[in-house]
Nucleic acid binder design. Structure first.
Lengths: 213, 213
DNA sequence: TAGATTGTTAATCGATTAACAATC
DNA sequence: TAGATTGTTAATCGATTAACAATC
């Protein structure tokens, strides 16, 4: 219920997972669930679920548990699913194209309103009804809009300059797909995907398991 | 130096980041670095760096610090960069194509040896000199090989069945790009990417920052 | 009301940081 | 040798888990 207590990033990162599980329960027409039952499905403790949820409010009811639909909606609200985030993709190569086709981002409140590249062969083509625009016109494009998030799918070397450019123009959040930690002189939120880091951790774990056998 | 002490996942997850920073230092022709200086570059404590590294061995030298190249190589070895992981991509849609073009996975020890799909329009085409094969022939393909990692880039609904199939055929690790937690009755290592979770955390952080202003 | 299950406080655990003796 | 910096132990901090009174 503490509306202004600092909520740890560990808790925030679990919210999308709760949201997914609640969505599954909804699809299964399950209307109520206790922290204990949810904990068994998710492989975490009931205590952690109750602690996490109580960072944001008392969503449950003693003796009953949680109403699946209303908890789903509450977590959706916390995550901003019902807000609208204006999103642009910078870089329309394979990764940019892949992201443009992730239609389920829509359902999570992310609205793709522009795709940019510098490659003349790509500019003018359409991805999901959105024309790829010249990145050199991005400042004009953004002048009458608020862009919440730029998905950066540009080549490694270009990433810092592109990141600086879009941050300087007022984009609030960067979703970085390049294997680097961006250092930006602007007040912008950066979330890194770092696919190769993830793959290397998988490699380590596969190797580790073999060592033990 | 403790070769068999359980190393926490938090430490493992930091290794690729150390590896990246050391690679950058090498490129800058910096030959030695102290934990203190590295800590300033990385924005973590020197204590943490020394603790982390000492999980695997005493790579430094008192009064000197760490030799960049040898530390880079040590961490590379720990992560398996010098091993060869045989990798296949399952699903040659946008994401599969994007991953097939991430040539820097090669440098990290991941060797792409096969791409599979079920779409007749894709089967036979080539991505980076590798012909897309019919997923129905995957069991034949794997029969005389060891596959360390399957990158799963198939549609959401197909992911569980494909994951089960490849795990049953002896693939050791799954890199899962679908927004779900796979439950598999086989002893296989799963690493999730969960792009939409990452994006939702970014959305939350952007929203949170605005609330504070 | 009795039973169930939450919200919340207290205890535990693990990870991070600090301190310093060892040593290059 | 003196200075620097590691490797490692001890202290702190934060996150997770347990316990239980509140209450539906």
């Amino acid at each position: 219920m503490n509306s202004d207590k600092k909520i740890s990033i560990a808790v925030i990162k679990r919210l999308p997972r709760y949201y997914r599980y609640l969505s599954d329960l909804l699809k299964m027409d399950i209307t109520r669930i206790s922290s204990k039952e949810l904990s068994q499905r998710m492989g975490i403790t009931a205590s952690q679920i109750r602690q996490d949820l109580n960072c944001f409010g008392g969503f449950g009811q003693q003796g009953y548990g949680y109403n699946v639909e209303s908890l789903y909606n509450e977590i959706g609200n916390i995550l901003g699913v019902n807000d609208k985030f204006n999103v642009v993709i910078i870089g329309a190569g394979n990764m940019g194209q892949a992201l443009s086709n992730y239609t389920n981002f829509d359902k999570r409140g992310f609205k793709l309103i522009g795709i940019f590249d510098t490659n003349p062969e790509l500019i003018g083509k359409k991805l999901r009804d959105i024309e790829i625009m010249d990145f050199n016109t991005f400042d004009k494009f953004i002048s009458d809009k608020t862009i919440d998030i730029a998905m950066l799918c540009v080549p490694y070397e270009k990433t810092p300059s592109v990141a600086n450019k879009v941050a300087s123009l007022g984009v609030k959040g960067l979703w970085n797909f390049s294997p680097m930690d961006l250092e930006i002189p602007y007040d912008v939120i950066i979330e890194n995907v770092h696919l190769s880091d993830s793959l290397m951790v998988l490699g380590y774990r596969v190797k580790e398991k073999q060592r033990k056998m």
